[in-house]
Design a protein around this nucleic acid. Structure first.
Lengths: 151, 151
DNA sequence: TATAAATATATCGCACACGATTTAATTACA
DNA sequence: TGTAATTAAATCGTGTGCGATATATTTATA
């Protein structure tokens, strides 16, 4: 009755697969909700970080979302083209590009407010499980990140 | 001291973000390990399903990995080009394409055997946490999948 | 048994995501 | 102070992922 046998190559035993599949399942739930905001899921995450704190350099957004500039630069250009953010070279350090919300970008927050509630409803997990998952996954991510460099 | 406050738009409160970030962290860990096998992570998952059961239609692989044909078809063509699998129309049902391992594909399993152990080491979680995560994430995914259709 | 509906892949367009590299600006330091 | 090292974005190539659609085959049904 225990699904976790000792075969090292069984899909069921792969924590990474559980994470991978859950991530895609989330994406499929978010897509229709975010279509209404005309945002993709990674774009939504960027907007969330900017709603938390406006006027950040690309590097700072990347650190929070664990994304590289090669991912963020085109994404931010799309958000700029959509009129939600502005990209400006920092006069104090011309290497840095600061991302600021436009009025439209700030206003979008209202429409985004009930997205988490909608997602929470379909996830159908009690709050204690959710908190435990967030904590476990955070620890997992930290361990993986910490060990990634010394491989 | 509790990170889970009531702001509905705080990144820290997003279970989906925890899953998303952990998924990418896993990917970054897997990449160097799978480079030795000349496989990407999704290609590796396909090989795992075939090592578990050879000779499957595309549809069956898609159901196990929660992937669409639009993702699998090009991926399987790359595996075929790499000489690891063969794609053959099922003579009993010409709509279906059956995927079978080549000799090289079967032999690759040996080299893949210690990948999970390597990943397990850097994850640094005790077995009970891992099992709990797999179960919680499986439940989450099932709930999300079940509610995806009736949205 | 024609024709409609369903099924299995394939194709296309778009948007990530990353590693490797490049460019430009700043900082360190000999 | 001038050159090297570092830092911040951007660019490029490859490979996912998905929704929408197309094509071919099989099944259902009028």
């Amino acid at each position: 009755m225990d699904n976790h046998d000792n075969n090292p190559l069984r899909l069921e035993n792969f924590l990474c697969f559980s994470v991978y599949a859950a991530s895609h399942a989330f994406n499929r739930i978010y897509k229709p909700l975010l279509d209404a905001l005309e945002l993709t899921y990674p774009q939504y995450l960027v907007m969330v970080t900017l709603w938390e704190q406006d006027d950040q350099p690309v590097r700072s957004i990347g650190e929070k979302l664990f994304l590289e500039s090669s991912t963020l630069t085109p994404l931010l250009k799309r958000l700029e083209a959509a009129g939600l953010v502005k990209r400006t070279r920092d006069p104090k350090d011309e290497r840095s590009v600061r991302i600021t919300l436009t009025a439209a970008g700030r206003e979008l927050r209202q429409k985004a407010l009930d997205v988490p509630r909608c997602v929470g409803e379909v996830a159908e997990l009690d709050l204690s499980t959710i908190k435990r998952l967030i904590d476990d996954l955070g620890q997992l991510r930290d361990n993986l990140e910490a060990n990634a460099s010394r491989k």
